[in-house]
Design a protein around this nucleic acid. Structure first.
Lengths: 142, 142
DNA sequence: GGGACTCTAACGCCGCGTAAGCGTAT
DNA sequence: AATACGCTTACGCGGCGTTAGAGTCC
């Protein structure tokens, strides 16, 4: 019957600072059910536990994978299901299979990210060279 | 007075295939003035020269830098200005300064991309380990 | 009670995807 | 005369940014 002795919570501004997401984004993640704060104050302030904050950090790490928020929610829920001691074996197995699909997808997306980085730095280098060369022609200084 | 003897052109489908952008995207780039086809057929078909196609490729490489389409247009126009033999020295110098700013921005964005990749693959690895570990516990085979 | 913090509600924006209906022709 | 390709117009959407106005916390 014990939730453990009183859990420390943080309000949204502090969380935003710590995690590096905007207030709006964190509220949005609440709205769509990705990270719902474990509690609210009497007056309605969102109260985040450390576990909630960790969850936000995880979501932030997922963002570059370019998944929809629906997919992200799906993944975090599957991870919950996997960790849930109430779940039966069959339920966990289903979660596991779907997570394996997401893991494969994530690996593809990492590969795509590497390509994007390659393209971006190819362009950036070319731009840098173009600027430097043009300046070499006309030193233009004093 | 010569534009050179008849310039080969390509219509949009062929270009999309070659560059790896959707028809819609290419049309959109025309609408907003990023890459405007050098010609149109009598009936209104967009006709792209090889130079146009190269320009599209350049834009595609810029995309991961996460610039707005307005900024992208700005950059390509500045590069045009720099290459334009009609331009006077002052004009080219202004272009050059602004391009140098974009080059610095691009370098920052590349750095951000690297961080994103790092975060994404950190998450991906963790997910992969979670799945594999859970499966090690329950081989679940035949 | 004052100042910093937070709340909900609602509109706005960007970069296309996606029809729908119609004209063209490397 | 049929087929493949292209055109314009217009609406929709995801993921927040951004006010606006009211309430809360210490």
């Amino acid at each position: 019957m014990a939730d453990g002795p009183d859990v420390r919570t943080h309000q949204i501004g502090e969380v935003a600072e710590a995690v590096g997401l905007s207030l709006r984004t964190i509220r949005h993640y609440d709205e769509v059910g990705i990270v719902v704060p474990s509690a609210r104050s009497a007056g309605g302030f969102r109260l985040y536990t450390d576990a909630d904050v960790d969850r936000l950090r995880m979501v932030k790490r997922m963002k570059p994978l370019d998944l929809s928020l629906e997919e992200i929610r799906d993944v975090v829920e599957l991870l919950d299901a996997l960790a849930d001691p109430e779940a039966d074996t069959a339920g966990r197995d289903r979660a596991l299979d779907r997570l394996a699909l997401y893991a494969a997808l994530a690996e593809e997306r990492c590969e795509r990210l590497r390509q994007h980085l390659a393209q971006a730095s190819e362009f950036t280098d070319a731009l840098r060279r173009a600027v430097d060369e043009a300046r070499a022609g006309r030193p233009a200084g004093s």
